[in-house]
């Protein structure tokens, strides 16, 4: 069964919008998520395939509503809990 990330050929999406002179990151937290993920993969906490899988098994409505780095952060926290690095309560933030 395909998952929500498998959008190739799917109909109903809007026209493509370009952002002129787009910066690599749109907010500081995105750069931190990027760097954190790289460090955690580098340390072998999880691997790249596990990371992609953690994005691709997001619930469809959450996947479609999330920005690119929101998906990344979702995957990082999901894997930190699943790998037993932290508890779900620890990674929560009020």
């Amino acid at each position: 069964m395909s998952r929500i990330n498998d959008v190739g050929g799917m109909q109903g999406f809007a026209p493509v919008e370009q952002e002129l002179d787009e910066p690599p990151f749109h907010a500081d937290w995105e750069a931190h998520v990027f760097a954190m993920n790289r460090a955690l993969i580098g340390q072998g906490v999880y691997n790249l395939d596990e990371f992609r899988d953690a994005i691709e098994r997001m619930p469809p409505e959450e996947y479609l509503a999330s920005s690119y780095y929101e998906k990344w952060f979702h995957a990082v926290t999901t894997l930190l809990v699943e790998k037993g690095v932290f508890t779900a309560a620890e990674v929560q933030h009020d």
């Binding site: 907010a27 500081d28 937290w29 750069a31 931190h32 998520v33 990027f34 760097a35 954190m36 790289r38 460090a39 955690l40 340390q43 906490v45 929101e70 952060f73 990082v76 926290t77 930190l80 690095v85 932290f86 620890e90 990674v91 933030h93």
Partner: peptide, 27 residues
């Protein structure tokens, strides 16, 4: 989300899993 990312990064630093200077270098 910015505060949440900071929270998780702080946890990782405390656990010795990320080094803030190394993060800056990589970025």
């Amino acid at each position: 989300i910015s505060a949440h990312v900071r929270h998780v990064e702080t946890l990782l630093e405390q656990r010795g899993l990320v080094d803030p200077q190394e993060l800056d270098r990589a970025l």
